[in-house]
């Protein structure tokens, strides 16, 4: 509950800030850096060290489509480091809801990367913050230029996303030549049909705000072992999509439990590890 209220409140408060702030924006082309206050709000002002060498964030310098910006979170502890990766948080500093997602990494899941797609509203820094099992925080950042022209972070085909709400697919990605060196890892992609609606828009006819509806909780298991769990907000793109590497534990099934902010539950499972 606590976490989902963080996503919700951040969305509401900052949306208001965005609207109120648009007049001020005209005079000041460079908006103030929100990161220091985000560190306070999201990480309770705990010290954050440089994550160079521990974690990577792959994001395009220019967002091509404001509604679909691919980002890959990479995290692999160097050999000999006995700590475990506990939690990875993705923050899009200038978005109406900056806290895009936080991923709890399953113990011994061997997850080394998660790729997903984000909405990016403005020119912004993006931060990836890792919390290790010893409680230390590490961050890396990337700057992403907003998409130009008529691109918008809203959905493109709202009827389609809504008509198939909650439909899920899992795809196992065959090992490719560049990952052949680590055959112990597998790669999979999870797709969920959901508008992940931001709810920040006012309906032109009723003048009421459309309620937000988005996937706020997601858990992925192999057998009974957690691979990762996500708490997410409206910065995750329509039809949330996660591609991740993990260490197989021999389980024959992968299982997903998701829930949206309207309280609707979505569950599915698939056989894994067969011939690809």
């Amino acid at each position: 509950m606590r976490a989902s209220s963080v996503f919700g409140l951040a969305g509401g408060t900052l949306a208001l800030g965005l609207i109120l702030g648009s007049a001020a924006y005209a005079q000041s082309p460079a908006p103030p850096d929100p990161w220091p206050s985000l560190v306070g709000d999201l990480f309770h002002d705990r010290p954050i060290q440089s994550g160079d060498g521990l974690i990577t964030l792959d994001a395009p310098y220019r967002a091509e489509d404001a509604a679909l910006v691919p980002m890959t979170l990479g995290f692999a502890l160097p050999a000999g480091d006995a700590r475990q990766m506990k939690k990875i948080t993705l923050v899009i500093d200038q978005n109406p809801a900056p806290m895009a997602a936080s991923f709890e990494i399953g113990a011994n899941s061997g997850v080394t990367s998660i790729a997903t797609r984000l909405r990016v509203n403005d020119y912004t820094n993006v931060h990836e913050v890792a919390e290790l099992s010893d409680g230390n925080l590490y961050a890396v950042q990337k700057y992403v230029k907003a998409a130009g022209g008529c691109s918008a972070p809203a959905g493109k085909n709202l009827d389609e996303a809504t008509a198939h709400l909650g439909e899920m697919r899992l795809r196992e990605i065959a090992a490719r030549p560049d990952t052949a060196g680590t055959p112990a890892l597998r790669e999979a992609q999870l797709m969920i049909r959901h508008p992940n609606n931001s709810g920040l828009q006012m309906d032109q006819v009723s003048h009421l705000y459309i309620p937000a509806r988005y996937i706020d909780s997601l858990k992925v298991f192999q057998g009974d072992d957690l691979i990762f769990a996500m708490e997410g907000g409206i910065s995750i793109s329509e039809d949330p999509n996660f591609r991740f590497t993990y260490k197989p534990n021999g389980a024959k099934m992968m299982r997903v439990e998701a829930r949206d902010s309207g309280g609707k539950q979505f569950k599915s499972e698939w056989p894994i590890g067969g011939e690809m």
């Binding site: 924006y25 005209a26 404001a66 809203a154 828009q201 309906d203 032109q204 459309i210």
Partner: peptide, 24 residues
């Protein structure tokens, strides 16, 4: 028939994002 909804979803964003391109 979908235009009112599309404007509701995008209008405010366009007013904000096009400021950069068109000027105040």
């Amino acid at each position: 028939a979908n235009l009112p909804r599309a404007l509701a979803a995008r209008g405010a964003f366009y007013l904000s994002s096009f400021r950069r391109m068109l000027g105040d």
